[in-house]
Nucleic acid binder design. Structure first.
Lengths: 241, 241
DNA sequence: CTTATCAACTTGTCATACCAGTTGGCCGCG
DNA sequence: CGCGGCCAACTGGTATGACAAGTTGATAAG
C-alpha cells in the first residue's frame, strides 16, 4: 500500500483486471450481489467498466478461484454463498505442497491438530446429548465394519473426528478438523500396510464416546490426548510415495 | 471426479487453461520447478502445450492467485517458496467476508481462537526460556507504551500473542494465530471507543508471562482462558462500521 | 400437448496487433 | 578504461475481432 506520508514512494500500478476484481468483490461484500444472484455478463461488464474482454475475464476467473462465484459456459456466472468449506478449500493445494516440501511441516500440522482436537473434545463433552452419543457409537460401528479396508477405515475415522467437532455446534471447528485430517490422510502409513492397531483405535474411540456421553470433559481430553499421542507416529513422511 | 464405476456418468469437460494449470502445478509440486526458478514465458508455454495465449495466461494467473508463483511485467514469472503465510493468505478475503456476512461466524471464530491459544500457551510454557520470557516482557512494555493509541495497542496485542505461539517452535501456530487475530481485529470494539480495560489487559499479560517463565502450563492455560473469556465480549459485530 | 428446431444469449478459445516494463549489450565520450 | 545513454530483444498487459461450444426460451409443427 502506498504510503500516504512519502510523496516520493514508488507508484504502485494496478492491473486493469485487478481493478475490475476489486469492483466486483466490493459488490459481493456489500450485498449488492448476493448469494445465488447472477453476475452481469462479460459484455455488460466490459461496457460498465470501459475495459476490454480480457480484463473482465481475468477478474471473473480470479473471483472464481477465490470461491466467490461459479462460472459455467453458456450461462451467467452466479455468486456463491460464502462458507467455511469454501474458505478452507482455498488452502487445500498449498497445504498439501507444504506437507510434501518439508518434513518438519508434518510435525507442525500434527501439533496443530492435537491442540485443536483436544480443545474441541472438551467443548464437545459439554454439549453431548444422548442422541449424539448414539450417533458417535454408530460411527464407531461403521469403522469397525471397515476393518480390512484401509481407505474405508480412514474415511470412517475422519467422519468420527468431524462428528465430535460437530457436537460443539460450531461448523468452523468441523470444517477445520475435516480439512486437516484430509491433508494428513496422505501421510497415514497404515494406508500402505496394515498396522494391526485398528482394534486399539476402535477401543479408544468407544472409550472416548463413553466419556462424552458422561459429559466428562477432563476424561475426554485425556483420552483424546492419549489417542492422538499413540497414533502420532503413524503419520509419517515415509507414507508418501 | 468421474466415477470409475458408472460408465454413464456425465462427461466432465475440463477447460484448456485448467489442464495447463494442472501441468504447471505438477511441475512445481514435483520439484521440476523449484522456489526461485523462472517459469517458461507465455510464448514458450503456448508452443510447449499447443494452446493459445489466453489459456496460458489464465493458468498462470490461477497459479499466482494460489500464491505458487509471482508474475511481474517485463520479467519471467518466478516460483514462490511455499509458506504457511502464503497458504493462510489465500483465506484472508473470504474469512473476512464470512465474518461480515453472518454474526454467528464471529462467535465460531472466537471459539476456535480460544481453543488454539489455550492449547498453544500450554505448549509454550514447556518451551519458555529466560530469554523468551524477557522478550515477552519487552512486548508487554511496548503495549504499555501504546496506551492511548488504540491501533498501536491492538497491534502490540497481536504481536504478543503471536510471540507466545512462537515459543512453541511451530511456525504454523504462529501463522494461524496471527491470521485469526488479524481477522478479528475489525471486530474489536475498543478500536472505536476506549474501554478503560487496557490496564487489565497489561496486568493479565504480565501474569501470563510470569507463568510461562515458571514453566507452569496449568497456570498459563488458566490465565489465558480467563484473559480470553474476559475480552471475548469486546469482539462484537457492532464494532464493524 | 409434446417434441423438435432455431435464435439469442452466454462463456471458451484463438490469432493478431500493439502497449509497456525489464534487461543486457554495445557504442560513444571523457 | 570506465561510465552513461541508447537500443534491441526479451518479458507481461491490454484490446479487438472471429469463431466454437453450451444453455435457454420461444415458436412451429405434428
Amino acid at each position: 500500500m502506498q504510503s500516504a506520508n512519502d510523496p516520493f514512494a514508488p507508484i504502485a500500478r494496478q492491473r486493469l483486471s485487478d481493478q475490475v476484481y476489486d469492483r466486483l468483490r466490493g459488490m459481493i461484500v456489500s450485498g449488492q450481489l448476493g448469494p445465488g444472484d447472477t453476475v452481469p455478463s462479460e459484455r455488460v461488464l466490459m461496457e460498465r467498466f470501459g475495459v476490454g474482454r480480457p480484463a473482465v475475464r481475468e477478474a471473473m476467473q480470479a473471483l472464481a478461484n477465490k470461491g466467490l462465484i461459479t462460472i459455467s459456459q453458456g450461462e451467467r456466472s452466479r455468486v456463491n454463498a460464502p462458507t467455511a468449506d469454501i474458505a478452507i478449500g482455498q488452502v487445500d493445494e498449498i497445504a498439501k505442497m507444504l506437507l510434501s516440501s518439508e518434513p518438519a511441516n508434518l510435525g507442525h500440522l500434527k501439533q496443530l491438530r492435537k491442540i485443536l482436537e483436544t480443545g474441541t473434545v472438551a467443548l464437545a463433552a459439554r454439549h453431548c446429548g444422548e442422541g449424539d452419543a448414539q450417533a458417535l457409537r454408530d460411527l464407531v460401528e461403521v469403522q469397525r465394519a471397515a476393518v480390512g479396508d484401509p481407505e474405508g477405515f480412514v474415511a470412517a475415522d475422519i467422519a468420527f473426528h468431524v462428528a465430535i467437532a460437530g457436537l460443539t455446534g460450531n461448523p468452523l471447528l468441523q470444517t477445520v478438523t475435516g480439512a486437516m485430517l484430509t491433508w494428513l490422510r496422505d501421510y497415514y502409513a497404515p494406508l500402505l500396510r496394515w498396522s494391526g492397531r485398528e482394534a486399539t483405535t476402535l477401543v479408544e474411540h468407544a472409550r472416548l464416546v463413553d466419556h462424552l456421553a458422561a459429559g466428562n470433559a477432563e476424561a475426554a481430553v485425556a483420552m483424546m490426548t492419549a489417542h492422538l499421542d499413540r497414533s502420532d507416529p503413524l503419520y509419517t513422511a515415509e507414507a508418501r510415495s
